[in-house]
């Protein structure tokens, strides 16, 4: 089953075309990295899934249903969303932030509380220490961990991540990448992950979609892309892939 399917999707803002007819499918349970330079249309693609952006033409399907005909809040409740900045609510505690979606979904208090503890532990934050803190008392890495926990709280079918580790230092980023792979391996939530970092895309993505100028340059496993780059742009990109990432892609241990 495809969790997300883009069918000849286009998006233009006035005269400029951000996305020029892209078709791709994200299989349920997979982790797909959507990579490209700034202005390649990758974030626009991502935001069309939860209808923060409405396509000019074409369709976006969510588990087979046309998102255009769905109730937008009902759709969004099934989708977790993580931004580059954690964008936590500063007036709520960590527990309050994570409880937002369970509260919107009308979960009872006990279930919400246990979900908060579970997610904090999963993200490597001790619930006793962190639940009652406020966002501005956390480091950038901790804030982003809470941001991910908040997005996962309502047990979404799909997690959309828009360069979530872009603003973090290398060590924190690397740890969070490991954690994300671990979490994905554990509960198999479908993840669509936007990044401009080719190493990150190849490290995380079971499949990688390379966007260039609003079109899809290539969509395949890291191994397929390394073995068989679709065009000059992809070939050029691969020059920037680190040696370790290249080796991993050739072996394709995923």
């Amino acid at each position: 089953m495809n969790a997300i399917e883009f069918a000849d999707v286009k998006k233009s803002y006035g005269a400029s075309e951000a996305v020029r007819g892209v078709s791709m499918a994200v299989e349920e349970g997979s982790l797909v990295a959507l990579m490209g330079a700034s202005g390649s249309g990758k974030t626009t693609m991502l935001k069309m899934v939860n209808r923060l952006v409405v396509p000019t033409s074409g369709k976006v399907l969510f588990f087979g249903g046309d998102t255009a005909s769905m109730d937008v809040t009902a759709l969004r409740k099934k989708i977790g969303y993580v931004l580059q900045a954690a964008a936590l609510f500063p007036h709520m505690t960590v527990a309050g932030n994570i409880s937002t979606i369970p509260e919107i979904l009308g979960w009872d208090k006990a279930r919400t509380r246990s979900r908060v503890s579970e997610l904090l532990s999963l993200m490597g934050l001790d619930p006793d220490e962190f639940a009652a803190r406020y966002p501005s008392q956390l480091s950038g890495g901790q804030q982003q961990r809470v941001g991910i926990a908040r997005a996962m709280a309502g047990e979404p079918r799909v997690l959309l991540m828009d360069e979530p580790f872009g603003a973090l230092d290398v060590i924190t980023r690397s740890r969070l990448q490991d954690d994300l792979l671990r979490i994905h391996g554990r509960d198999g939530t479908t993840i669509l992950f936007v990044t401009h970092d080719i190493d990150e895309a190849f490290r995380l993505g079971g499949r990688v979609a390379v966007m260039n100028g609003g079109v899809m340059a290539q969509y395949g496993t890291p191994r397929e892309i390394v073995k068989n780059p679709a065009d000059d742009y992809v070939r050029q990109l691969l020059n920037f892939l680190s040696v370790e990432a290249l080796k991993r892609a050739e072996k394709d241990t995923k």
Partner: peptide, 18 residues
């Protein structure tokens, strides 16, 4: 208010009033 905070809230499926 930080537009990213608003975007995060919208993406969560808040009603406008909520």
């Amino acid at each position: 208010i930080d537009p990213l905070v608003i975007e995060a809230a919208r993406a969560m499926g808040y009603s406008r009033a909520g």
